[in-house]
Design a protein around this nucleic acid. Structure first.
Length: 229
DNA sequence: GCGACAG
DNA sequence: ATCTTGTCGC
């Protein structure tokens, strides 16, 4: 397998990355409802790292949104393109994730990624970044609250509490399993927050984490081991 | 100035 | 993210 190279024009430091976010943030579209939850295709994307060898493996797994069965899978391996800096996560994964999505034979439909979209220090997290670059509808489902503080949602599945920034509800702490820690949902691009939450609930009939990310997580780890070994 | 901080 | 055994619980 070929190793994806870091784009020549990729940001070299934090200042350049901030400038890129500042330029791209204006292209985010959040007034489209997005695909109807439970229909069409849903694609999960995730990455695994090998800091020792400076490698990152990305996976894109397409599911039938109605049955949640796997329709197609694709992977890509690249060089780590940026250090981990809270708020600049996208610069670390985007090149390789784009390659994995491009390796898909069919369209991805809605893309679900780890991390945040609109709920971000500068309102431009990974999900929004990926959306603007691909033009696809994207949502972000994170496992941790990042810098946000939130009220505990009611105990039942489906309960939610707002993630607020500057008086705006930028995301939601959504309980996908009764009595279990919530996940943190935000719209990335061309999807509404309400729909992002509805999609998340459709994708979690059994576990806290969406089936899409569970599949993508397992696949990128396998892909990384395959080349490491 | 220090701490916290998606993955 | 990643390093890691056993262990509690359904």
């Amino acid at each position: 397998m070929t190793i994806i190279e870091i784009p020549a024009d990729w940001p070299a430091d934090e200042a350049e990355a901030l400038a890129v976010q500042d330029e791209l943030r204006g292209r985010v579209v959040l007034d489209e409802p997005g695909p109807a939850p439970g229909t069409g295709l849903v694609t999960g994307v995730d990455v695994a790292y090998d800091d020792e060898r400076d490698l990152v493996a990305a996976a894109a797994v397409v599911l039938d949104a109605r049955t949640l069965t796997v329709v197609e899978e694709a992977t890509a391996v690249g060089r780590v393109s940026f250090p981990y800096v809270p708020g600049l996560l996208a610069f670390r994964e985007v090149p390789t994730v784009l390659a994995a999505l491009a390796a898909l034979r069919g369209g991805p439909g809605l893309v679900v990624c780890d991390g945040y979209g609109r709920a971000h220090p500068r309102r431009f997290g990974l999900a929004s970044h990926l959306g603007v670059l691909t033009g696809l509808p994207v949502i972000g489902v994170a496992k941790n609250p990042f810098t946000f503080t939130y009220e505990q949602p009611a105990r039942e599945r489906g309960a939610a509490a707002p993630l607020v920034a500057d008086g705006e509800e930028v995301g939601r702490a959504l309980r996908t399993r009764e009595g279990v820690k919530p996940v943190f949902v935000s719209a990335g691009h061309r999807v509404t927050l309400d729909n992002a939450c509805a999609h998340t609930l459709h994708l979690t009939p059994r576990y806290r984490i969406p089936e899409t990310t569970r599949h993508a997580d397992a696949l990128c780890r396998r892909a990384l081991k395959a080349i490491t070994a």
